[in-house]
């Protein structure tokens, strides 16, 4: 005897849902990160040396990976967000699956650009 089945991953295995999941996940992580980001930047109140001291902390590779991940998350959230704005405010033209593909490409490009510029 068990409980009746409920909505599981099979019901959600379609592209627009994946886009929503990425958007929500990236948004949540960004919301957690932003206060820390502001805290870091407010160290600038200490003047150039104080600011530099706290920047040095971010030289650890963990922070470098985090920075890269955040750029990618930001790109994902931005592209997915623009898609949602088009769905909600623009003329109806389906679930804009072309946009999802562009979003993924955009995120990859941003990730690569970051790696390229950050040498």
């Amino acid at each position: 005897m068990s409980s009746r089945p409920t909505l599981d991953y099979r019901a959600k295995s379609h592209l627009p849902y994946f886009a929503y999941a990425c958007h929500r996940f990236s948004g949540l992580l960004l919301a957690c990160f932003i206060p820390l980001h502001f805290l870091m930047l407010s160290q600038s109140l200490r003047g150039a040396e104080g600011f530099e001291a706290s920047l040095k902390l971010t030289d650890f590779w963990v922070f470098k990976f985090g920075e890269w991940a955040l750029v990618v998350l930001l790109a994902v959230h931005l592209a997915g967000g623009v898609r949602l704005l088009i769905i909600e405010f623009g003329p109806w033209n389906g679930l804009r699956k072309g946009w999802i593909q562009i979003s993924i490409l955009f995120a990859i490009v941003c990730g690569l650009l970051f790696l390229y510029f950050a040498n």
Partner: peptide, 14 residues
């Protein structure tokens, strides 16, 4: 925190 950061960067701690 955000406004503090903006002020901090604008003034540079001055």
């Amino acid at each position: 925190l955000g406004t503090t950061a903006v002020i901090g960067l604008y003034t540079g701690g001055a």
